[in-house]
Design a protein around this nucleic acid. Structure first.
Lengths: 193, 193, 193, 193
DNA sequence: AATGAATGAGTTTTCATTCAT
DNA sequence: CATGAATGAAAACTCATTCAT
C-alpha cells in the first residue's frame, strides 16, 4: 500500500508536474481513497519527501553500482574521475523526467535533505580519490566541497538543458576540471611544476 | 505605478517568502487595488518574472561595475578570474535575502529566463578572458559553459549555506578551478607538459 | 451583504441545526459564494459569534422596550419584578427556534460572550430594584448574581421544555422567588417577620 | 471491555475536550481497535450518553450519600435545604473537569437525558422537604420545578465560574432562596401581608 | 469476537482573477 | 484608468464507520 502510494506519487509528479501534484490526484492514481493516504503519511510534504529520498538513494546506488561494475579504481589514473562523472551522468539520465520536476518545479526546500544526502555521498566517493591522488591543497574539505558543487550543477544542467556538447566532450571537461584541478595545488595550480 | 507594484512585489517576496506571495498581498503592500495590478501584468507569474529580470540585471550590472572599478583586466593574469568571481560573490551577497527566496523557494521555472540571461552575460565576460589566455581547448564554448555552471552553483551555495570556507580561500579555489583549468588543455590537462 | 450573510446564517442555524451549519450551506442560503463570506468574517466561528451577539442584543432591547412600555417602575412594588420576568419571557419566546439551537446544540463556548453580556444587563436592571427595595442582604452583588442565574435557567427551560405550568403561575413563582427573597435578609429570611 | 471503553471515553473527554473526542482516540486510549468499539456501541453518541448517564448517577449517589452521612434530616429545619445544596455542590466539585466539558463543550442534546434524570432525583428529594414544611403554594410541583432549575444553574455556574462569593455565603443565599421562598406564600406573594 | 486497514463524503479555507462601477 | 467586492474552483485534511479477515 505504501508502495502503491509512493509509486503513484512519483507518476503524478513526473506526469503532471508539481503544481498538479495534489493529494487527491495521487490518491486517484493509486486507486486509493484520500483518507488511506493519510494513514501512511502525515501530510502532503511527507509524500514528496519520501519520493525524493528514494530517488536520491537510487542515484547513489546507481553511481555505486556503476563504479563497482567498472572494476577496481586506480585512483592514480585520471580515468577514475571520468568514471565517477560518467556514473553520475548515467544515474541522472535514468529518470530525467523526475530530475526535471525536482530541479525546475520543486521549491528547493522540498528536496533539500535528499540533495544534501546525495552530495555527501558523492563527496565521500571523491575524497577517496582526492587523498589517494596526493593532492596538496591546503584545505581538502574545501576543495571537495567546491568540486562537488561544480559537478552537481554541470551534470544536472547538461541532462536538462542538453547544451551542444557531446557526452564524451562533457566527460573530458569534467575530468579536466576535477582532475587537473585536484592534482594542482590551490591558487598556484597554474604555475609550472 | 508599475514601479510601485514591482517594488512591492520584491518586498513581499523577501519579507514573506514565496508561499505568502499572493497578488492580494502585493496589491496591499503597493497600496493599490488588486484590479489595478492586472492592468499592468497579465498574471501573477508575470510579476515574478519582472522582479527576477530586474534582479538579474542588477547583478549583471554590479558585476560589470565591480570589474570596471578595479581597472583594466589583464587577461593574462590569473587575478583576472579572481576579480570576476569576487565581483559575482559581492553581487550575490548584496541581496542575499532575495537570493535565498529565489534559490530555495521559487520553483526554478519562475526564474529560468532571468537566470539564463545572467549566465549568458557572465559567459561572455569569461569568453574574453579565455580566448585571450590562449586556451587550447577543443571547444571553447563548451569550456565556458562548464565553468559558468560550476561557478554559479559554487557562488550561490557558498552565500546561502555558508560552509566553513573563508571568502579568500573560496576565491583561491575558484581561481584555481577556472584558471588552472582554463590554461590547461582539455582532457590532457593532467599530462606533463 | 454582511446583512445577507448574517441573516442566512441565522436561518441555517434555526432550520438545519448547528451540526449542519457549514460555511458552504450558509453561502448557499445567502446566494453568495463561499469566498465572499470570508471577506467579512475571518472564520466560521466569527459568524456564529455575530449571530449570537445580535440575538443577545435583541433580547436585551426587547426586555428594555417592554419595561419602558409598561410605564415607570415603582420599585417598591413587587409587581416590578413580575414585569421584568414577563419581559424576559416574552423576549425569549420571540425566537424560540433560535433559543433552542443556542441552548441545546451550540457548545456553550460559542455563545459564552453573548450570554455574559445579557446576564450583565439583566443584573443591572435588577440591581436598581434590589437597592431601592431596601434589601438588607450582606452582599447585594452576590444576591443579584444568584437571582440572575436562577431566573435565566428557569425562563429558558420553561420556554424550551414547556413544563405543565401556566405562564401566569410561572410569573407568580418567579416574583415570589426574586421578590420574597429580595425583601428578606439573606440567611435570616425565614425568621419571623 | 465495555468498562474499558467507557473509562477511556471519560478520560479522553476530560483530557482532550469534546472537539478532540474522536472514536479513534477513544479506541487508542482503551487500547482496543475502533472496530471493537462498534461492537458495544451503535455510534459515537451512544458512547457519550453512557458516560453522561454514569456521571449523572454518580452525582445522584454522592448527593444521597452526603445526606445519609449527615444523619436524619429534620425537614422543619431550614438547615435541611442547606444540606441538600451543600451535598450537590460537593458532588459537582468532585469532578469539575468533567462538569466543565459537559456544560461548556458538549451540545446540550448530548447530555439532556442524563440531566433530566438528575433533576428528577433532586426534585424528589426536595419534594419531601417542601411538603413537610407545610408550604402553601398552589402548585407544589411547579414550585419544586422552579427551585430545582434555579439551584441547578446556580450551583453549576458557581463551580465553573467561581464568582467572588464564598462557599458559605452561597449556601446562605441558596438556603434563603429555597427556604425563604418555600416558607413564603407562593401565589399569594403579591398580595399585601 | 476482535481487528484495523480502508473508506470517502464532507469540511474549512484560500486566492488568482474578473468586471460592473 | 482605477477600483475592490465578488467569485468559485479547488486544496489539504478529518473521522465516523465498515467489513474482510
Amino acid at each position: 500500500m505504501v508502495e502503491r502510494i509512493v509509486e503513484a506519487a512519483r507518476v503524478v509528479l513526473v506526469r503532471d508536474g508539481y503544481e498538479s501534484f495534489t493529494t487527491n490526484r495521487v490518491a486517484d492514481e493509486a486507486e486509493v481513497s484520500p483518507g488511506s493516504l493519510y494513514q501512511y503519511f502525515p501530510d502532503k510534504s511527507a509524500l514528496v519527501t519520501v519520493v525524493m529520498d528514494r530517488w536520491s538513494a537510487e542515484i547513489s546506488d546507481r553511481v555505486a553500482a556503476s563504479l563497482a561494475a567498472s572494476g577496481p579504481v586506480d585512483v592514480q589514473d585520471p580515468a577514475a574521475v571520468r568514471g565517477i562523472a560518467d556514473a553520475l551522468l548515467s544515474a541522472l539520465e535514468a529518470d530525467a523526467g523526475l530530475l526535471r520536476i525536482v530541479w525546475e518545479e520543486l521549491p528547493a526546500v522540498r528536496h533539500r535533505a535528499a540533495q544534501h544526502a546525495l552530495e555527501t555521498r558523492v563527496r565521500e566517493l571523491l575524497a577517496v580519490y582526492l587523498s589517494a591522488a596526493g593532492l596538496r591543497s591546503a584545505d581538502p574539505a574545501a576543495r571537495a566541497w567546491v568540486i562537488v558543487m561544480a559537478v552537481e550543477n554541470i551534470a544536472v544542467r547538461w541532462v536538462l538543458d542538453r547544451p551542444a556538447i557531446s557526452r564524451d566532450d562533457l566527460l573530458d571537461e569534467l575530468t579536466a576540471l576535477a582532475g587537473g584541478f585536484a592534482s594542482g595545488s590551490g591558487a598556484d595550480a597554474r604555475s609550472p611544476e
